[in-house]
């Protein structure tokens, strides 16, 4: 899990950004958090959320803990819906990716603007929100499939909850 998050954090920086999507980066780490929330135990899910958040904050100018806070909330919400959705359906991953992408971007903007670290025009924030929703919807299903396949191959299925 830690290796996957480490590689995910590095990959997140490599993906290209687009003006019309508000220059947001592909939410690779968020996708991993959603995967661990849906497919693993709560302990693993929380470890993943905290570590992914800390890593994201460490690799940019966000104060330490902000992303962990947002990721933990996403993980908790997603895991609460786990029994009500088809966990292995791509549509589920797409919906969770879209909603969580938009929500995390807006929550982070709220935290950053409240502390005076970022100040953006409302139109630009909207564009970032839309970009996060789209990128989350596109990326998370593929990422889920990939990590799930990797986990299956490596035999990391013992801690999985049904």
């Amino acid at each position: 899990m830690f290796m996957a998050i480490l590689v995910g954090a590095v990959a997140q920086a490599v993906f290209p950004t687009f003006y019309w999507l508000g220059q947001v980066n592909a939410p690779v780490l968020l996708g991993l958090v959603i995967y661990y929330a849906l497919a693993h135990s709560r302990g693993t899910m929380l470890q993943a959320a905290i570590f992914a958040g800390l890593l994201q904050d460490a690799l940019c100018m966000i104060p330490l803990g902000y992303s962990s806070f947002c990721f933990c909330i996403v993980a908790v919400v997603v895991s609460n819906f786990k029994d009500m959705v088809f966990v292995h359906e791509s549509f589920t991953h797409m919906m969770f990716g879209a909603i969580a992408g938009g929500a995390v971007t807006l929550a982070l903007y709220g935290l950053l603007s409240a502390t005076g670290l970022v100040s953006l025009a409302p139109g630009w924030v909207f564009l970032k929100g839309v970009g996060s929703v789209l990128l989350g919807a596109i990326l998370v299903p593929f990422e889920f499939e990939f990590i799930e396949g990797l986990d299956r191959m490596l035999g990391n299925t013992d801690e999985r909850t049904s």
């Binding site: 954090a9 920086a13 508000g22 947001v24 994201q56 970022v118």
Partner: peptide, 10 residues
């Protein structure tokens, strides 16, 4: 590397 969140140009 570049900024991984898109909030800053770094």
């Amino acid at each position: 590397a570049r900024d991984i969140t898109g909030w800053w140009q770094t």
